[in-house]
Simulated assay, not measured.
Amino acid sequence: MTTQTTPRLPFEIWALIAGSFAVAVGYGVVAPVLPQLASSFGVSITAASAIVSAFAAMRLVFAPAAGWFVNKWGERPTYTIGLLIVAASTGACAIAATYGQLLVLRAAGGIGSTMFSIAATGLLIRLAPVKMRGRISSYNAASFLLGGLLGPGARRRRRKLRAAGAVRLLLRHAPCRSRTRRPRSAAQHDAAVQTRPR
């Protein structure tokens, strides 16, 4: 009786799955606050919601071109460039001076997201064993969806941790302030001793 051994997955596959999870967590942390950031420029609710829609729209429009970049440059360069575009555009959103700049930066993030996601899919198919391609593709999709679910929760948990840390800091120093007394001078000490009942 022969036993079939499951082939060991290469490290590159686990790195791609972890990268998808990390990107999805970051998107889940940033996406809920983008409409509030857009509203700070004095735009309408529809325009503020368009900040989120611009990311998805550019993913849809740029998907065919991203496949062409993968064929021309290869999966690894396209994956790296896409990640760098997403990271740079997301970080630049924090210093956007106008609503137009914020909209352009989110659109650029959608382009980069399309590039690295299509390149990651191509790498997974090429590196995965033939009999495990379906399972590995499901791992990658599940990691991205799980990261998207945990992203907003991680943001709320970070707020709670900050609030709890501030409360602990206040409680730690409040008793110290109440217990500390100003040192008495020698004259005050002698007066207190003389007035003390014997």
Rank of each mutant, 00 (worst) to 15 (best):
I95G: 00
R162E: 14
L170A: 13
Y99F: 15
V29N: 05
G147H: 00
Q188L: 15
Q188F: 14
G134V: 13
A128R: 01
G122D: 05
R155V: 03
T90Y: 09
A88V: 11
P35Q: 05
S117M: 15
T98C: 07
G74P: 02
A128F: 04
I118Q: 05
V25F: 00
P183D: 09
F62R: 00
S53A: 15
N140Y: 09
P197T: 08
A88Q: 09
Q4K: 12
A63Y: 06
A191H: 14
Y79I: 00
A31M: 11
S143M: 13
A187P: 06
A57I: 06
A128I: 03
G134I: 05
N71A: 15
T195V: 14
V193C: 07
P152G: 03
T121I: 13
R168G: 08
R157T: 15
I125N: 08
K131A: 14
F69M: 11
R157D: 14
A141G: 10
L169W: 07
R135Q: 13
A48R: 11
T46H: 09
A108Y: 01
L124A: 01
F62L: 12
D190H: 12
M132I: 04
T195N: 14
R8W: 07
G151T: 04
H173S: 04
G147L: 06
V193R: 15
T46I: 13
V29I: 15
A54S: 11
A24H: 08
T121L: 14
Y139A: 01
A66Y: 01
A47W: 10
A24D: 03
R198L: 12
G26W: 04
R76S: 09
A128P: 00
A56S: 14
R76K: 13
N140V: 00
A166W: 07
S49R: 10
G28N: 08
N140E: 01
F69R: 02
A192V: 11
A63M: 13
T46Y: 09
T5K: 14
R158M: 11
S53M: 12
A48I: 07
A56N: 10
G100Q: 07
S39M: 15
A54D: 01
A87R: 03
I125L: 11
S185W: 07
G122C: 04
A87G: 11
G109M: 05
F69S: 10
G134P: 03
A128S: 12
W73S: 04
R181N: 08
Y99E: 03
A186P: 09
A66M: 07
R59L: 08
V130R: 09
G28R: 02
S143D: 02
G122F: 04
H173D: 11
V25R: 00
I81M: 13
G109A: 11
G134C: 09
F41I: 04
R106N: 03
G19I: 00
F11G: 09
P175R: 12
L171T: 02
Q194W: 10
K72T: 10
V61D: 02
A119Y: 02
H173E: 13
A88T: 14
A18E: 01
L60G: 15
Y27G: 08
Q4V: 10
Y79S: 03
R179A: 08
R155P: 00
P175H: 15
S137P: 00
P35A: 07
L170C: 09
L84D: 05
M115V: 06
R8F: 12
L84H: 06
A120P: 01
T78H: 07
N140W: 06
A128K: 07
S20C: 06
R198P: 09
P129F: 03
L150W: 03
L150V: 11
V130Q: 09
